[in-house]
Design a binder for these strands. Structure first.
Lengths: 244, 244
DNA sequence: ATGAAAGCGCTAACAG
DNA sequence: CTGTTAGCGCTTTCAT
């Protein structure tokens, strides 16, 4: 791997000049000089070292995404969207899975700090307690969260209640009579909201709310599957709304 | 963000000593000194800057994964597995989507070089041509590929033919009579192998091979969906084997 | 057992 | 328009 020094040497200019052309810096570089440098860059297949640059600039063009599990299609979809944007702007994305485990969440936050990530995007899991929230606060404006979080960070929020209402209303219109609900643990804000959306759709449609039709899992796809299977069998449901 | 200098200062030792304790270096550090340093580290919530470290050590504890699309469950599953291992060993994973676009593939390879990634894992798409293969070769032993690739890199290969045979045999045993096949473009090695597995299962079971039951798409889920729908309708199939 | 100093590759004043 | 120099934060000889 050749460095800026190699290029400078080959082009018989100073490293500053090389830096200027690789950064299309405001200081104009003489076209002839520039051409020489570009030639050298090509011949050496030179790429500026992002570590050195980041160290100096305090900017790494890297963001971290902390989610429960990339193999869950819900998160995969979100991540893909983020990555497309990141890509477009020259940012690298470091992906970290937590399984909603607080220890892992914390570890990942530290990790991203070491890597000097410019920003971190968080989704899924609890972050308003203990060392997690304090270490996140240290990062100040470098953090954004997806979904509701009992913490004051810029957030992309989801209309959980509205979405649930719409989904259930749709099921009703399909003539389903016995519609179940599967959510996460009690502390899950999104579950709470979706449950209320589910209830209000039922009410609107003149259906009774049967507590027996509601189950709470741990927000993993497998738990959703098991619960749904059980629910359908035991309660003879015709449809289930679930959030995993 | 505090640095090693801050810690050294606070603990009244040299930065060398701090480095020794953060790296549990072979040079033993006096327990008392060590304690002082650890105390300072805690108080300052110090984390060694991975950029500086990487710049010096030529080792970034980072690997890149280049795949067509993380929102495709096939790749999401692979990525999750890689990440679990990476996590376990303290590696960061940078994820890059290509949509099998050669330009994007190339761009990502360069990008990872700039980031000084220790390794790169590639899957999905063509890499045995042009600048892609040459830039990959420059990376020498830092590259591994998933699947067959007409290039000599360490590879995790998949038993495409065997898997397809098994799948089709299973469908036959379920009494399906009209089984279709959907694959990728002609240059796709995996399609070729799976198609041969499909054919041999059919032959084994004494079924005819009907070319009309075979379609080729572009390996995206959406193309698979459309082709399958069309195939099922037109040929009145009862089952389809597809690779997307 | 501890520290001083060199240097990884790069950008940003500051000169000329 | 171009070059010299001083670090960014860290590990590693080489002394002490």
């Amino acid at each position: 791997m050749s460095t800026i020094v190699d290029v400078a040497h080959k082009a018989k200019v100073s490293i500053t000049t090389v830096s200027r052309v690789t950064n299309s810096s405001p200081h104009k570089v003489n076209p002839t000089t520039r051409a020489k440098v570009i030639k050298a860059i090509k011949e050496l297949d030179y790429r500026p070292n992002a570590l050195a640059k980041g160290l100096l600039m305090k900017r790494t063009m890297t963001v971290g995404i902390i989610i429960p599990d990339i193999s869950n299609p819900y998160y995969a979809e979100i991540v893909r969207g983020i990555q497309d944007k990141a890509d477009e702007h020259g940012y690298a994305v470091i992906l970290l899975n937590t399984e909603r485990n607080p220890d892992r969440i914390l570890k990942h936050i530290y990790f991203l700090r070491e890597k000097a990530a410019d920003g971190i995007i968080f989704s899924g899991g609890v972050i308003h307690e203990g060392k997690i929230i304090s270490s996140l606060k240290e990062l100040r404006d470098r953090v954004i969260v997806i979904g509701q979080h009992r913490v004051d960070f810029p957030a992309v929020v989801i209309d959980n209640a509205g979405g649930a209402t719409e989904a259930v209303r749709y099921l009703v219109e399909l003539n389903h009579q016995r519609i179940g609900f599967i959510g996460g643990p009690d502390h899950s804000l999104s579950t709470k909201e979706r449950l209320s959306g589910y209830r209000s759709a039922l009410t609107q449609k003149g259906y009774p709310y049967d507590r027996g039709f509601v189950r709470k899992g741990d927000l993993t796809p497998v738990s959703g599957y098991l619960l749904a299977k059980d629910l359908i069998r035991k309660e003879r449901l015709t449809a289930v709304f679930l959030r995993e």
